[in-house]
Amino acid sequence: MSTNLDKDALPQPGDAATDGPTPLLELRDLHVYYGAIEALKGVSLTVPHGQVVALLGANGAGKSTTLKAASGMLRPRTGDVLLRGERVDGIKSHELVRFGIGHVPEGRRVFARMTILENLKMGAYRLRRPDPTDLERVFTLFPVLAERRKQIAGTLSGGEQQMLAIGRALMGKPDLLLLDEPSMGLAPLIVQQIFEILREINEQGTTLLLVEQNASQALRLADYGYVLETGAVVMSDQADALLSDPRVRAAYLGEAVE
């Protein structure tokens, strides 16, 4: 894979998006370590209200690590995580969900021995009084979950588990949904279906930060995109600009450089 991207020609990370009102999520110069290994080497990005932001890159580029730092699963050594302009880094993930963050983890990770309904109720765990319309909303978005609500989640297909993982996160009423590779290991038709539902979720007012290896799908949904390489942002632009950028096309869409 080509990594021959010209860093000098890039806009500064996020500067197109930082103009205007306070963004919903802002990451500033995050440095995250796994032991002695530096997984993120100063990642900055912004996610404005109501938008879809895609985070692209190869395996090991630091995409999942960035999401985990945003949802409190990992603590950055230095750098700030700002939610609606307030610093939230250092707050543990179980407390951070109250700030309206939903994280759909990599590999779906549904509670395999609980039923669909129990999984969805777990999603609403943070709420003192769960809102029954949330369940209706999830079942409307994913009719297949409604049909099988008593089924044990571990027996669902990969696509259904992904839908359940997204539905579960929605039950917590997130303003910001972090999605870690929702297309992983799924058939193209299912991927398409899931991306259509993600668009619908966004149109209903939820902001999305989407990590994907499937760059073309992600960029067609996204408003803005960032490209990560070995723990740093190497490119960022409007999604359609990235989609037509020959370097992105060569590196992430499998096209030969013209």
């Binding site: 949802s71 699963m73 543990k92 990770r109 509670f111 609980m114 109720k121 777990m122 943070r126």
Partner: peptide, 24 residues
């Protein structure tokens, strides 16, 4: 009960349970 669903969630996947707001 809520405690029970927390116990079961932590037993299955503590990391994801905390993403649901469960204080492990």
């Amino acid at each position: 009960t809520k405690l029970g669903s927390g116990i079961r969630a932590v037993a299955q996947d503590p990391e994801v349970a905390s993403l649901m707001g469960v204080d492990i």
